[in-house]
Design a protein around this nucleic acid. Sequence first.
DNA 1: CTGTTAGCGCCTTCAG
DNA 2: CTGAAGGCGCTAACAG
Lengths: 344, 344
Amino acid sequence: MSEEKKWTLKSIALHLGVSNATVSNAFNRPDQLSKDKRQQILKACEELGYFGPNKAAQSLRKGTSNIVALVLPDSVEYMVSDPVASSFMRGVAGIIEERGNNILLFSGTQDNLNNVVDFVDGFICYGRPRNLNLFAHLSSVTKPVVTVDFDLPNRASVNIDNTQAAYDAASSALTQPQAQVAILGLRLLDTNVVCRVYDENLPEDLGTSIAHQRLAGYQRALREKHLTFLPELLWSIPESSEKYATIAAQEALSLTPRPNVLLCMSDLIALAAMRVAKSKGIRVPEELKIVGFDGIQEALLHSPSITTIQQNSVEKGKTAALLFLERSTQKVQLGYKLIQGQSN
Amino acid sequence: MSEEKKWTLKSIALHLGVSNATVSNAFNRPDQLSKDKRQQILKACEELGYFGPNKAAQSLRKGTSNIVALVLPDSVEYMVSDPVASSFMRGVAGIIEERGNNILLFSGTQDNLNNVVDFVDGFICYGRPRNLNLFAHLSSVTKPVVTVDFDLPNRASVNIDNTQAAYDAASSALTQPQAQVAILGLRLLDTNVVCRVYDENLPEDLGTSIAHQRLAGYQRALREKHLTFLPELLWSIPESSEKYATIAAQEALSLTPRPNVLLCMSDLIALAAMRVAKSKGIRVPEELKIVGFDGIQEALLHSPSITTIQQNSVEKGKTAALLFLERSTQKVQLGYKLIQGQSN
DNA sequence: CTGTTAGCGCCTTCAG
DNA sequence: CTGAAGGCGCTAACAG
């Protein structure tokens, strides 16, 4: 540990009196030399403290690194607070780790992939990045990309049918003829504040976002029940957190007449709404029906339990990782399950 | 997007009719050429779709990459499920991201750092790695290392005084003369199962682990109160999860005579114990006092709230990241706070 | 400010 | 199995 010499492939070869090609082959191409010689070389290297060819040099030469970038929709900070995102990450990590690859976390707030693109073998992208420049860059990158919860032309992807799922969720709540529906949307607008969404400020390019897809599902259910939806009852919440969701729920439940159905685009939003309702003495589901989305543990265990769409985020992660490792460009649609709870 | 030529520094220089040193300087050393020329070059590069020098080559040449490996005590999978670990990660990510660095997740189950050591600038190591080979390798690596919740000679570290904190927690619970204490320890033994810990199987090298430190604190408090501790009332739980904690709590609370004080080395363990007690109709704190460790949200909001040691994991993460970025070798001790809850 | 050059550490090919 | 050579893409040093 004291006289640690810094070995390189060349210096090791010299030291062992063999050609550097042979050392290289001992590590990378076992078929190119005899078992004996190979064992002998590897053993000597271990004793000398040479742990194999320098990976950075190898990566430059071969163009692969066994590192995959996990591109998060938002900052890394936010990611680890969100239970759905965490589950997804668990799925990805399980597979990637098992195959001896490593994960580089990449924040979706950055402007482009330049800082890491040359280090990694490709990208798994969870949710459309918040930064639109980054989003654009992802389309043009020459390395493999797997997208999750959104699509990119010619790239592998993993999705669920958000529109149908939202339709199912909404339908289960729209049973009374006098339903007065409010929708607490997740990131319908590209802004950091809680606000109402009026038609005119719904951006065009959101057509592909899960928020927009879910909204379409809700609206289809409403139409089918011949319910009219008031545009002022649509909120955009910037992130799935208690803080912002509470603000929106407060606004919604302070209106007169008060909505009696709350369609929430995430369970965390639904849970926040539940707390607001409780604090206002509004009974769920008698006076107010609430449905969520995601199927997180907390929502299912809550009392009353929340009606929600359960998606298997761990499986989503595993699927994305496998598609990546296979260099597939397949588009996969996973299933979901409507969980009927006590909240409607 | 169609005729994407793959530019290199050299080909760009040729194309622009300048020396490659000048292109390199335009990106890396603004002082080496005039503002005008620089702007002109950068603009041309952007138009051509050259996003700057290849990072892998740069890294090989310069030996730095702006990537830091976050070494986790266990698999990545486990990491993202644990609220304390997640908070720590939030702290690290906030600082690292802000400085334009990136985080590579490294699982503590791997045998050595070889897969990534050549790619990263150094290591932030959260908790002693479960794999002891990896632990050993960390000591001998030539790049900067910051350790958290354990120490390595000549390396920067971030800790709290676990022994004192455990002592404080235990003292607050040991008020009655007839205290019958059971301890639910976290990873006192290097095994994957829940089991009792008898003196003879307490490994020597655990002297430096937080579990051992906390145990020492508990024992000091017991001694001071002249309480005798029965060795069969000490459990080792392999990870801070509901599943394993429940098993241990079940075992402990099924004994006759039943312990009336439960010292738990994490809040998740304490919460599980609380649930077990409830299911058995044991009243807390009247018949059973419980103290936890960590100060996670859920423990504080629980009813009855749990007496615990609050440590600021986000700050821990920030501190570790700053020490790393400063290439410091300082050993930092952070504070903690005893939160008196209703569980004792 | 330019142009050249020598590596960073490795892999692959090719003739022997 | 060896040995030599070219090159992955870049940076730093140096002479001009």
